[in-house]
Design a protein around this nucleic acid. Structure first.
Length: 477
RNA sequence: CGGGGCGUGGCGCAGCUUGGCUAGCGCGCUACAAUGGGGUUGUAGAGGUCCCGGGUUCAAAUCCCGGCGCCCCGACCA
């Protein structure tokens, strides 16, 4: 393996794959388009899972598991759904050496099987709402793949809920969108724009799709989580009905929402630098790496004794790891843990032992700045504070970057310039033709219509007609 | 599916144009010694179907034909 990542400014895409691989997150698998998530990457994903799962439970959801194989006919029951997903299905036609009577689809998403089961389970308004989430893998036969951002198989969670009324389902859709936004901001330190997708960008089978959009380090957009209001489309296709209070048969209203391992790619691209990964403390598998330093065996024993004490005091509050390998020099270890994105490093050497202090270095602050002699007493509080500061600073920096690269172009010429460099936040008449023209012209698409915007009127940036909403435009992954 | 690049010890590559000694370099790996506060040296080692198949030739990593695979860039997509 090379010893240094390709500089970000030189070749962003190579920088990304370098950081993912050298940061020990993932590796290419023998099957094209598939990847192996290595322990460090998986630990990061586990923390993403934990942060989301906690929020799902807090909003009344429960986990369940539905099968990987779905009868092909299920996918075909909802017209828009089949049209959207057909091109990327993996289909099993042989099982146990025999041709199957009906081919099985490897799930690309589970609306259909879950809809089928909901039809069985839901009889009465008393059965509603159903608030189920599943953690699973899905397969989509993608033409072009990229580690974490788009792989043939990926891990995600998909929530599927059924409600008695449209209002309730809509509320749920937005509630989960907000859960994603909150997670992104608070845990991943990634600022996001929550908004409604345009018709052309909407999920196959949805009435309305929403997403959180984030800006990567190259100013391109990454859809980082989606929430869909499915109306009664799947309820009708799968005959999910309930008897209401007036003894009348009604179709339920459903939602679905998902967030995938793509989020790991977002974390890499938003926070990483030329030294490698930079992980937000709340999600970092290791928050504090302790590197003991010694010259002789006697020093080694002395230092390690203090290290053991320090580790014991921090262990309960901080995810801490001691790198006491004898075969690597301290400098080597510094680089290694920087590549892996550990937010805070603690060095203890003979000099520190003598003075009852340690040295702390922040991953997000370049060079040797951020290092300081920190007394052993009160170290726990100091570490906690620094981790909190790093978390806050990472968010602040990402937010500044997003704002600095979001433009409000005055005319179409400025608009073209804006979307070649970042996001444009512009009036849009809502017409798909304008969207299509912009895409052809600039390669930028509507990312979303932000929910949080002042009501007002303006002129569509593309056609000049009256517009009542502004959209975020940008090039996307 | 279109465009580009690449396939040579574990990893990164050179060698190929102009065929020819025993296929080389860096990193990593093993052993020993010194070193240790920003990728530390030295010495000695281990490790190769040169992607696969065919052809040309006295001789192929190198030339010719065919295949396979991967990465990157576009269209499709979380």
């Amino acid at each position: 393996m090379a010893t240094k990542v390709t500089p970000r400014s030189e070749d962003y895409s190579r920088w990304y794959t370098d950081v993912v691989q050298m940061g020990d997150l993932a590796d290419y698998a023998p099957v094209k388009g598939c990847m192996v998530i290595k322990p460090h990457g998986y630990a990061l994903w586990e923390n993403v899972k934990a942060g989301l799962d906690r929020r799902f439970k807090a909003t009344g959801h429960v986990n369940a598991y539905f099968p990987l194989f779905i009868p092909l006919s299920f996918i075909q029951k909802e017209a828009a759904h089949v049209e959207g997903f057909s091109p990327e299905l993996a289909i099993v036609t042989i099982g146990g050496g025999k041709q199957l009577e009906e081919p099985l689809v490897v799930r690309p998403t589970s609306e259909t099987v879950i809809g089928h089961m909901y039809a069985k389970w839901i009889q009465s308004y008393r059965d509603l709402p159903v608030l189920i989430n599943q953690w699973a893998n899905v397969v989509r036969w993608e033409m072009r793949t990229r580690l974490f951002l788009r792989t043939m198989e990926f891990l995600w969670q998909e929530g599927h809920t059924a409600h008695a009324t449209a209002e309730e389902a809509q509320e749920e859709t937005l509630r989960m969108l907000n859960v994603y936004a909150e997670f992104a901001v608070e845990d991943a330190a990634i600022p996001v724009i929550a908004g409604r997708k345009s018709e052309s960008e909407r999920f196959a089978g949805a009435v309305t799709s929403y997403s959180i959009e984030a800006m990567m380090g190259d100013c391109k957009a990454l859809q980082s989580g989606t929430s869909h209001f499915l109306g009664q489309n799947f309820a009708r296709a799968f005959d999910i009905k309930y008897l209401d209070e007036n003894n009348e048969l009604q179709h339920v209203w459903t939602t679905s929402w998902g967030l995938s391992t793509r989020m790991v790619g977002a974390i890499v691209m938003v926070h990483g630098d030329d030294q490698g990964l930079v992980l937000p403390p709340k999600l970092a598998p290791v928050q504090l790496i302790i590197v003991p330093i010694w010259k002789s065996d006697s020093e080694r024993a002395q230092v390690l004794e203090v290290v053991a004490r320090v580790e014991a005091t921090l262990r309960d509050e901080v995810r801490v790891h001691v790198d006491d390998r004898d075969e690597y020099s301290p400098g080597w270890k510094f680089n290694e843990w920087e590549l892996r994105g550990v937010p805070l490093r603690l060095e203890i050497g003979p000099r520190d032992v003598e003075r009852d202090q340690v040295t702390l270095a922040r991953r997000d602050v370049p060079g040797r700045e951020g290092k300081s002699g920190v007394p052993l007493s009160g170290l726990g509080e100091e570490v906690q504070e620094m981790l909190a500061t790093i978390q806050a600073d990472l968010y602040r920096r990402a937010l500044d970057f997003l704002q600095a690269n979001t433009y409000d172009p005055k005319d179409y010429a400025e608009f073209r310039e804006a979307v070649s460099r970042g996001f444009a936040y512009s009036w849009w008449c809502g017409d798909a033709d304008c969207e299509a023209r912009i895409k052809e012209d600039t390669r930028a698409t509507t990312r979303c219509v932000p929910l949080d915007q002042e009501p007002g009127r303006g002129k569509c940036i593309a056609c000049g007609k009256d517009a009542v909403e502004r959209a975020i435009f940008g090039r996307a992954y």
